[in-house]
Write a protein that binds this DNA or RNA. Structure first.
Length: 518
RNA sequence: GCCGCCUUAGCUCAGUUGGCAAGAGCACCUGACUGUGGAUCAGGGGGUCAUUGGUUCAAAUCCAAUAGGCGGUACCA
C-alpha cells in the first residue's frame, strides 16, 4: 500500500480551463467587445471582492456562505460607518471597528451600481446629479448553488453592457439590438435564436386588475407563468390552484391555492397572449386585457415604442419577439426585461435531445442605485452567459477547438543548448511561438511524442551532424501525420523522414515560416 | 429540498440465479540495429470491486446507513 499525502481535489462547481477553451472564450469576448464598443460602451473592470452590504439584498445573515453568496470576514479591522460615511463612535469617543463582511461578486451589475453610486457620493450627505454612463465588463462571477446542473457552475463568466442614467425605452430597444448583433457576430444564424422581450409593467397591470397587492403572491404567480413553455396551460392552472404531481419525477409541487375565478383570469391571460406570433399581434391581444389599468397601459406603451424602434431598424420578428410569459429576476427588474434563447438542440452523450435555454438576460433596473444612495437612477442592460454560450457554440460546432502549440526545438545534445535558445529567439522575433524542450526524458522519441502531444506544428532538429554541416533539420509534423497514413512499414517510416528537410542554418526562420503557412 | 437510478483499473465498461487466484478495450510505461511522432508486434505497471456495518460456510454480487455522481423536479439576484 502506497503512502500518500493530501488528496488533491478541486472545489465542487469550479473548473480548470484548458487552452482550447481559453482560446474560444477569448475569441467570444473579443467579438462581443467589438459589438459593444461599436455602440459606444467603454470597457471597465471592477474588483471580484466587494463589501457584502454594497452588493444588494441577497446577503447571508451570518458569516456563512448561504443564500447563494460566498462571503467571509475581512481580516482587516475597519471603522463602522454611519449614513453620512463617518465612523461610529462609542461613549468614550473611540471609533467602532469591525471585520466587515466581504462577498465575491455574484454578478456584474451590483458592482456597477456600487461604482456609479460611489461617483455620485460627495461625502457631505449630498449627491451629484446622475450622469449618463455606458460601460461593458466581463469576467468571473460566483454563486453558491446547492445543486449543480451540467453547464452550471459556481464560478462562471458573464459579459455585461449597461446604460446607467437613462429612462428612455430606446435604450432598452437598443439592448435588444446589441444582443442580436452580438449573437450573429458570433456566428449564430438568424432564426436559430430569439430575443424575448416583456415588461414587468404588464404584470403589474395584471395584478392591479386581479386585485393582488401582495408582493409575495404576485411573485409566486409570475414564477408559475414563467414556466409556461415547460408545463403548459394545464400545468399552470394546476400550480395556481391545487398543485400537481410531476408525472416523470413524481415530485409533488404544491399549488398556490388561488380561487378559481382568479386562476381562470390568469389562464385566460396566458392563453390569449402567449405563443402568439408577431409583435403587433401580441400587442393587439394584450390591449383589451390590460389597457384599462394605468400600469398595464404604460407597459403596453413601452412595448409599442420598442416595437417601433426595432421595426425601423430592421430587427423584425425573426430576431426579437414579445413574450408576456417571461419574468426574470423579479427582485430587481422594474420595466422591460429580455432574454436570448437558442432554438438549437443537440444530442448529449446518451443520445438525448437537449436545448440550451437562456444564454443572455437583462432588463431595466431603476432601483439598484437607489438602494445605495436613496436616489432613483434609471438603468438598463443585459448580460451574456459566456460559458453557456461557449457550450452552445461548441456543441453546434461553430467554434474550432484546435489550439496549436509552439514550434518545438529538440535538445539533441546539451552542449548546444545556447544554440537552441538562439533558434527559439530568432523564431520569436519573427512572431512565431517557439519552445526549447525541457523535459526529463532526453530520448529523441520522447521529445517527438511531446511535440505531438503539444500539437506542435513544426519541430527543429539539430545535433552533431547538423552543426558540423552548418545546417538545421526542420520537420513539418502536420504534413508528416498525413503522410504516415500511407506508410505501414516501420523501417520505411524511419528512413523516409517524411516532411523533413535539412537547410542551411541561416534559412531556419524562412523554412519554418514556409511550413506554417501551408 | 423532494423523487428515481447509479458508483468495479487513469477513461469506457464486462463480471451470469452470491462460490474457482478480479477481467477487457483504450490510455500509460519499456523494448523491437542504439538521432525521429504514426501503424504493428512483444512485454509491463496499476484495483482495500465508493465507504462503513450487517446477512452467509462463502459477497463486486443480498440488506442498511453514509458519501459522491447522474436524470427529473423545485429554487435561481
Amino acid at each position: 500500500m502506497k503512502q500518500r499525502g493530501l488528496i488533491p481535489r478541486k472545489v465542487k462547481g469550479f473548473r480548470d480551463i484548458d487552452p482550447a477553451l481559453n482560446e474560444q472564450r477569448n475569441r467570444l469576448v473579443q467579438v462581443a467587445s467589438k459589438v459593444y464598443r461599436s455602440y459606444g460602451f467603454e470597457h471597465w473592470d471592477s474588483p471580484i471582492l466587494e463589501y457584502a452590504e454594497c452588493l444588494g439584498k441577497y446577503l447571508p445573515d451570518q458569516d456563512t456562505a448561504d443564500e447563494g453568496v460566498y462571503s467571509f470576514r475581512n481580516p482587516e479591522l475597519e471603522p463602522i460607518l454611519d449614513m453620512k460615511g463617518n465612523g461610529l463612535r462609542d461613549s468614550s469617543n473611540n471609533v467602532l471597528m469591525d471585520n466587515h463582511l466581504l462577498s465575491l461578486r455574484y454578478d456584474l451589475t451590483a458592482p456597477l451600481a456600487r461604482k456609479y453610486a460611489e461617483e455620485l457620493w460627495t461625502g457631505s450627505g449630498q449627491t451629484k446629479s446622475p450622469t449618463l454612463f455606458r460601460r461593458y465588463q466581463y469576467g468571473p462571477v460566483y454563486r453558491f448553488e446547492a445543486k449543480l446542473d451540467p453547464g452550471r457552475y459556481r464560478e462562471f463568466w458573464q459579459m455585461d453592457f449597461d446604460t446607467v442614467g437613462s429612462s428612455d425605452v430606446a435604450s432598452d430597444a437598443e439592448a435588444c439590438c446589441i444582443l442580436s448583433d452580438t449573437l450573429e457576430a458570433l456566428g449564430l444564424a438568424r432564426g436559430s435564436y430569439e430575443i424575448r422581450v416583456n415588461t414587468r409593467n404588464l404584470h403589474k397591470g395584471l395584478f392591479e386588475k386581479l386585485g393582488i397587492s401582495d408582493e409575495g403572491v404576485a411573485r409566486d404567480v409570475l414564477r408559475v407563468i414563467d414556466k409556461y413553455d415547460k408545463i403548459g396551460e394545464a400545468g399552470i392552472a394546476a400550480e395556481l390552484g391545487e398543485g400537481r404531481v410531476d408525472p416523470l419525477s413524481k415530485a409533488k409541487i404544491p399549488g398556490l391555492g388561488m380561487p378559481l375565478d382568479q386562476v381562470q383570469t390568469l389562464v385566460n391571460y396566458v392563453q390569449s397572449c402567449i405563443g402568439v406570433q408577431g409583435r403587433e399581434n401580441v400587442l393587439a391581444r394584450l390591449a383589451p386585457l390590460l389597457g384599462d389599468t394605468p400600469t398595464g397601459r404604460f407597459g403596453l406603451d413601452e412595448l409599442q415604442r420598442i416595437h417601433e424602434i426595432l421595426n425601423g431598424l430592421d430587427y423584425l420578428d425573426n430576431r426579437v419577439v414579445f413574450d408576456p410569459s417571461i419574468a426574470r429576476g423579479l427582485a430587481y427588474y422594474t420595466g422591460p426585461v429580455f432574454e436570448a434563447v437558442s432554438k438549437l438542440e443537440y444530442r448529449d452523450a446518451s443520445g438525448k435531445v437537449r436545448g440550451f435555454g437562456a444564454i443572455c438576460g437583462g432588463g431595466r433596473y431603476d432601483g439598484l442605485v437607489e438602494k445605495l444612495l436613496g436616489i432613483k437612477v434609471p438603468a438598463t442592460g443585459a448580460s451574456i452567459g459566456v460559458d453557456r454560450l461557449l457550450e452552445l457554440l461548441r456543441q453546434t460546432q461553430q467554434l474550432e477547438i484546435a489550439a496549436t502549440g509552439p514550434v518545438l526545438i529538440l535538445v539533441m545534445d546539451q552542449q548546444y543548448m545556447l544554440e537552441y535558445q538562439k533558434f527559439a529567439k530568432e523564431l520569436r522575433q519573427a512572431g512565431i511561438a517557439a519552445e526549447v524542450y525541457y523535459g526529463q526524458k532526453s530520448k529523441m522519441k520522447a521529445q517527438m511524442s511531446y511535440a505531438d502531444q503539444r500539437q506542435a506544428p513544426v519541430v527543429v532538429i539539430a545535433g552533431g551532424n547538423e552543426f558540423e554541416q552548418g545546417t538545421v533539420s526542420v520537420k513539418d509534423l502536420r504534413r508528416g501525420k498525413e503522410l504516415s497514413d500511407q506508410i505501414t512499414d516501420r523501417s520505411q517510416w524511419l528512413s523516409d523522414k517524411p516532411a523533413q528537410m535539412e537547410v542551411p542554418r541561416a534559412d531556419l526562420v524562412a523554412t519554418v515560416k514556409g511550413m506554417l503557412s501551408d
